[in-house]
Write a protein that binds this DNA or RNA. Structure first.
Length: 268
DNA sequence: AGACTGATAATCT
DNA sequence: GATTATCAGTCTG
């Protein structure tokens, strides 16, 4: 069994604290999608709601979608135009007829980073309301047959790409093409939590999730990054959706940070 | 703890 | 008509 103690879950903080000096500048986003995806881990996503409240959470899982021919070789279209805009532009798309995914454009044209999981910082109550609010009206609204929904754990509020969009009230209409450097609606900050400083956590690299239709040379890349031992990472584990051939090469754990001590292979 | 299923709709070609 | 690629619930062992 794994130890119950996990790193990084923090107390809810004062919602009015808005340390603007921590806001990440353009230069942070001006790096290739793979590098940016790693650099995003441990950063804080801030989102101001229509009522003025600011939600915050620490990014704990990302995926890179480089703009190179290696990966998503998709043409520019009206839908994905944000991926071709300034580094640090929010690209939000609608999927499965129900959910949204939140990406941040990177240096190269057409390159972006998908945010897959966020560890909530503030405000638990607001995020829970947003999660409880069904994306669409459920057909079966019968009062009797309902299984009582168990309250979300803190770390379950945004542990997936669709869930984090719900919890942070992110949708295409309000967030697509927002510039994270200049927008008042959403931006990134450095974390003040010691355990989220670069080099203080381990990063696991694995294959991306849900891209079976991509060509092998793209889908076999280890372009999913998550903070090891963080409870708030998404529930799609590397060994799920990756076929029986999964081996040590496909799930490498390295010490990240920027002093990359290349460590032994751990299978997670 | 893992496998499977159904629900859902804008955008693209 | 094809693409997109999540979540909650349910079943199985």
């Amino acid at each position: 069994m794994r130890p119950a103690m996990k790193r990084g879950i923090s107390e809810t903080r004062d919602a009015t604290a808005s340390p603007h000096f921590k806001k990440l500048p353009r230069e942070f986003f001006n790096q290739p999608a793979v590098d940016l995806s790693k650099a995003l881990l441990g950063k804080v996503l801030a989102r101001k709601l229509p009522n003025g409240e600011v939600l915050r959470g620490t990014i704990v899982e990302t995926e890179a979608y480089p703009g190179t021919s290696l990966s998503n070789h998709r043409k520019r279209s009206a839908r994905n135009a944000a991926m071709f805009m300034e580094p640090g532009t929010a690209y939000v798309y609608f999927t499965y007829g129900m959910y949204h995914c939140f990406n941040i454009s990177a240096q190269e044209e057409g390159g972006a980073c998908l945010l897959r999981a966020v560890e909530p910082l503030q405000d638990y109550a607001s995020m829970r309301e947003l999660r409880d609010r069904p994306a669409k009206k459920k057909k079966t609204e019968t009062g009797s047959g309902k299984k009582s929904k168990k309250p979300w754990k803190l770390y379950e509020l945004a542990n997936g790409p669709g869930k984090l969009c719900l919890a942070f009230d992110i949708d295409r209409g309000s967030c697509d093409k927002q510039d994270l450097v200049t927008s008042d609606l959403m931006w990134l900050e450095n974390s003040d939590n010691e355990s989220f400083q670069p080099g203080n956590f381990e990063v696991e690299e694995s294959k991306r999730v849900g891209i079976d239709s991509s060509p092998p040379e793209s889908r076999n890349q280890l372009w999913r990054f998550l903070i090891v031992d963080n409870l708030a990472v998404s529930t799609a584990k590397p060994h799920q959706r990756i076929s029986e051939t999964a081996g040590a090469d496909e799930v490498r754990c390295v010490i990240s940070g920027f002093e990359l001590q290349n460590q032994a292979v751990l299978f997670c």
